[in-house]
């Protein structure tokens, strides 16, 4: 080996060791800052909502929260029909999710739905009712107990010439109460899917003299009766709710939907 080569090798080792210590510094900084992030009060709400602290307390019992854009809440820019606002929640890349809570800070009833994905994907889509412009959020709880919160603002001042509820006929809803229609899709390029619709008025109880009347719980069970996922739903879920969830097609055979509303009416249907 010539002298110059030895020198070169030496300087490479030096560089590596300085890189290592640099890493340590960065790592420790990161640890400190993430601890701070979890504990600092108050958190800066990326949606800048006046009632973030309130919903943090009411919905998430002031538990540890991080704002995380891997929790994606998709709502339209404008709620054309405030009785039927589509929302979807996708959680990607945070590991196993134990529960997802959906809520709208400024809605008269803030809770929309709690989803326990269990053995299916942390994805759910459906429609809900909104009273006015509000943040719509999903909080996804990981195994360490931390809530990862994502969300979007929904603008609900419009209405336009499209208000469809004006012409909606009142049919004999009592006859179809609790009826379920569903379809399953095995899909090559996307996760396999289940969509189901339940006939139910989903009354909020906010209209004078009209008691609340809504589905409280829904469970998806496999053919052996084992729980795959469950949902706690609240009054803001739209009339005749329509859900989309993703699960592996091997679970399709004999999958059952059960549930119950606040008046004790039961839902029980084998899905196909």
């Amino acid at each position: 080996m010539t002298n110059s080569k030895i020198l070169k090798k030496h300087s490479v080792i030096k560089q590596i060791s300085s890189l290592k210590s640099g890493f340590k510094i960065i790592l420790s900084f990161w640890l400190i800052s993430s601890v701070n992030l979890a504990n600092s009060q108050p958190l800066v709400d990326p949606l800048d909502s006046p009632s973030w602290n309130l919903v943090h307390k009411l919905i998430l019992s002031n538990e540890t929260v991080v704002f995380d854009d891997r929790v994606k809440v998709i709502v339209p820019d404008m709620a054309e029909d405030p009785m039927n606002v589509p929302v979807s929640v996708t959680v990607d890349g945070i590991g196993e999710i134990e529960e997802i809570r959906l809520f709208a800070d400024l809605n008269p009833i803030k809770e929309i739905l709690n989803f326990h994905p269990g053995k299916i994907e942390p994805f759910i889509a459906f429609r809900f009712k909104v009273q006015n412009s509000t943040p719509v959020r999903a909080a996804a709880r990981t195994k360490d107990g931390v809530w990862h919160v994502g969300g979007s603002w929904l603008d609900a001042t419009g209405g336009g010439c499209t208000a469809p509820s004006l012409g909606r006929a009142l049919d004999n809803w009592v006859d179809t109460l609790g009826d379920v229609k569903s379809r399953l899709w095995s899909r090559a390029d996307r996760p396999d899917r289940l969509r189901f619709r339940i006939m139910h008025p989903m009354d909020t109880g906010l209209a004078p003299g009209i008691p609340e009347f809504y589905i409280e719980t829904l469970e998806l069970k496999d053919k052996h009766g084992e729980l795959l996922a469950h949902i706690e739903s609240y009054q803001p879920v739209s009339e005749n709710p329509f859900f989309s969830v993703d699960l592996e097609s091997k679970l399709f055979q004999g999958i059952v939907l059960t549930g119950r509303d606040n008046n004790g009416n039961l839902i029980n249907q084998v899905l196909q």
Binding site: I74, V75, P86, S88, A125, W185
Partner: peptide, 11 residues
């Protein structure tokens, strides 16, 4: 036909 939810059709 492909099982898209309305929120996916919107996008």
């Amino acid at each position: 036909d492909e099982g898209l939810d309305i929120s996916e059709a919107l996008q």
